[in-house]
Amino acid sequence: MSNYTVAPAPHVHGGDSVKKNMLNVIIALMPAYLAGCWYFGIGALIVSCVAMVSCVAFEWFISKFILKKQPQINDLSALLTGLLLGMNLPSSLPWWMVIVGSLVAIGIGKMSFGGLGNNLFNPALVGRVFLLISFPAAMTTWPIPDQLSLFGSVDALTAATPLAYIKQGIFTTFTEADMILGNIGGSLGETSSIALILGLIYLLATRTITWHIPISIIGTVLIFTGIMHGIDPCTYASPLLHITSGGLLLGSIFMATDYVTSPMTKVGQLIFGAGIGIITVVIRLFGSYPEGISFAILIMNAVVPLINRYIRPKRFGAK
């Protein structure tokens, strides 16, 4: 007899890992990220890099010195949080606000619950919403897309986002091509619809996520705004405008699908997505904020434990 290893079955693993999934999401974010950097120039680059570096640094410090456990920055989840947070901010945001946002995202949104896997809310959104409430002026000052700024000083010109125009009942400011390509005002990662959809296709192809959450959110928004638009086209914008504007695509593809804070069953995910869609539209059409996807996702995050409790998978041989 010699020293062989003994372990319970199964003896092989499928090779999936947390790191792989995180990396896939980061890769899927790249088209939208690069588009944001193209449109918003050096400012976008600074904001996003500050967010990523500070998120990773905060995760390392908090786990090392406060939680006293081996830091898990290798799993790339902190980097992803930083990237998502950065992409949710206007490119003109001062760097120190970005760092405050990162601290809240990692410190309060994630590590206070015990780290990856234990958080109730999407950390990047916690950071973003904290900034939005604390610094409303800075967070709603959107620079005009101007790729030339890459070579010059950061552009001081600002403009309202399409959603702000929608709120005021002006629907024709931007052309459809601009909306799809992302040549509009907004946070640096949310503007280019086509790049975001490229990311969705990549995520679906690599089976990192399933279609349930993004499609149910987008579908609900389509139906809801479609009905409202049908009732009164002058007051309510068209569904397509709603979907291509604001953070809806970024939110539904990358934020709502976060494993930790979304339901586990397919049916649960559909309910979760529908809830986000409805809340988003309600905030957009009837609330005081022009955009509501962040709040909608956070509200539905809170409902996830309840959904997980009551929506069970279909059992084999259930009576």
């Binding site: 010699s2 020293n3 062989y4 003994v6 372990a7 319970p8």
Partner: peptide, 16 residues
């Protein structure tokens, strides 16, 4: 004579 590589629990190891 062998090396266990599972959950560190006597109960689970005994079943293995």
């Amino acid at each position: 004579t062998s090396h266990y590589n599972g959950v560190s629990s006597c109960a689970i190891a005994t079943a293995t």
